[in-house]
């Protein structure tokens, strides 16, 4: 049974239909890369799965429960699916530890002590155990993004959505974040990631989705998508003749 079932999802902003019927099933433990031109709707798709955008048609369900736009359903969904943003979006007024603790205590009502233990464990997992007391503005971009990953992991999601998590980073900081993502994938986390890191997608992903003009234009294992693109649009996107 698929973990995430996306069926005929449509989303429009005014007259601009951005998602024109997306179908995608994600099995537990799958790592899916979403690639495509700017404006093809990649971010919008992820944001719909997390309920940050309300869909206009179709359905999305995660682990059997339907995504509905009311606070109770949204909260239930967001406890299952974490999201990592391009701009990290750490809470600047809290330390790294505080960032990881907050939603545990506030949303899950985890006792402070347990939440702190979990925060230490997750920060260690992303290699930042010693940065527990550092504020976001004392961390590099790569470190901030790793804290953001620890923050999402502390909620114990069954899947993670990653929207260009390395695009805002200086080139020398990309590797440290990708290493963490690679590890998550190896541990069996279900990942849905929009990325421009083609080599990474090729190495780590089980399937690659090529989006074009609001549709899933081509989908398949990375060997096929990268080596044997079928459509002219994908060929052009990959820069092969």
């Amino acid at each position: 049974m698929p973990l995430i079932e996306i069926t005929d999802v449509r989303k429009r902003f005014g007259d601009n239909e951005v998602l024109k019927g997306i179908d995608l099933d994600v099995k537990p433990g799958e790592v899916i890369a979403i690639i495509g031109k700017s404006g093809s709707g990649k971010s919008t798709l992820l944001r719909c799965i997390n309920g940050l955008e309300i869909i206009d048609g179709g359905s999305i369900s995660v682990a059997g429960s339907q995504l509905l736009p009311d606070e109770v359903h949204l909260k239930a969904l967001r406890l299952k699916v974490g999201m990592i943003f391009q701009q990290f979006n750490l809470f600047p007024h809290l330390t790294a530890g505080g960032n990881v603790i907050l939603s545990q205590t506030v949303v899950k009502k985890t006792p402070k002590r347990e939440a702190e233990a979990m925060a230490r464990k997750m920060l260690e997992r992303v290699g930042l155990a010693e940065k527990f007391d550092a504020y976001p503005d004392e961390l590099s971009g790569g470190q901030q993004q790793r804290v953001a990953i620890a923050r999402a992991l502390a909620m114990e999601p069954i899947a993670l959505l990653c929207d260009e998590v390395t695009s805002a980073l200086d080139p020398e900081l990309v590797a440290e974040v990708l290493a963490v993502v690679r590890e998550l994938a190896a541990e069996g986390m279900t990942l849905l990631m929009v990325t421009h890191e083609m080599k990474f997608a090729r190495d780590v992903c089980s399937r690659v989705v090529f989006m074009h003009q609001g549709r899933v234009h081509e989908i398949g294992p990375p060997e096929d998508v990268f080596a044997k693109p079928k459509t002219p649009e994908l060929k052009q996107f990959l820069g092969v003749q």
Binding site: L52, R78, N89, K108
Partner: peptide, 11 residues
């Protein structure tokens, strides 16, 4: 992004 990050954490 602060609204979105906190929403995505279930707040």
């Amino acid at each position: 992004g602060q609204w979105e990050a906190s929403a995505s954490l279930g707040m």
